[in-house]
Amino acid sequence: MGVAIRTAGESDRELVVRLLDEAFQDDPVSGWVFPGEEYRRRTHHRLMGAFTDAVLADGRIDLTEDGAACALWLPVPAGEEPGDGAEDIPALVREAVDPANERVELIARLTEGIHPSGRAHEYLWMIGVAPGRQGEGLGTALIGTVLDRCDREGLPAYLEASSDRSKGLYERLGFEFTGRALDLPDGPRMWPMWREPRQTP
Rank of each mutant, 00 (worst) to 15 (best):
M1P: 00
A4E: 15
A4P: 09
R6Y: 07
T7G: 07
A8F: 06
G9S: 12
S11Y: 14
D12M: 04
E14I: 02
E14Y: 00
L15K: 14
R18K: 12
L19P: 01
D21R: 07
E22N: 08
F24L: 08
F24S: 03
F24P: 04
P28H: 10
S30V: 03
F34N: 07
P35D: 03
E38I: 06
Y39M: 06
Y39D: 15
Y39A: 07
Y39H: 12
R41C: 03
R41W: 03
R42P: 00
F51Q: 12
T52V: 04
T52D: 03
T52Y: 01
T52Q: 01
V55I: 13
V55E: 02
V55P: 03
A57D: 13
R60Y: 04
D62N: 10
L63N: 02
T64N: 14
T64R: 12
D66A: 06
G67R: 02
L72C: 06
A78R: 13
G79W: 07
E80G: 00
A86S: 02
E87P: 00
P90I: 03
L92Q: 15
V93A: 08
R94K: 15
E95Q: 15
A96S: 13
A96K: 14
V97L: 00
P99G: 03
A100P: 15
E102C: 00
E102V: 07
R103N: 10
R103M: 09
V104A: 05
L106Q: 12
I107V: 14
R109A: 03
L110W: 09
G113E: 09
G118S: 09
G118E: 11
A120T: 10
A120N: 09
H121V: 05
H121R: 11
E122G: 00
E122V: 04
Y123S: 03
R133H: 14
R133N: 10
Q134P: 01
E136N: 08
E136Y: 02
G137R: 12
G137N: 03
G137I: 06
L138T: 10
L138P: 12
G139R: 15
T140P: 00
I143H: 04
G144M: 11
V146I: 15
V146L: 11
D148S: 09
D148L: 13
R152D: 10
E153D: 15
L155M: 12
A157E: 03
E160T: 01
R165A: 12
L169E: 00
Y170G: 02
L173A: 01
G174Y: 09
G174A: 09
F175L: 08
E176N: 13
E176M: 12
F177C: 05
F177R: 14
F177H: 13
T178D: 11
R180W: 10
R180L: 13
D183L: 13
D183T: 14
P185C: 09
G187N: 04
G187Q: 06
G187F: 02
P188Q: 02
P188F: 00
M193G: 06
P197Y: 10
Q199T: 15
T200I: 14
T200M: 13
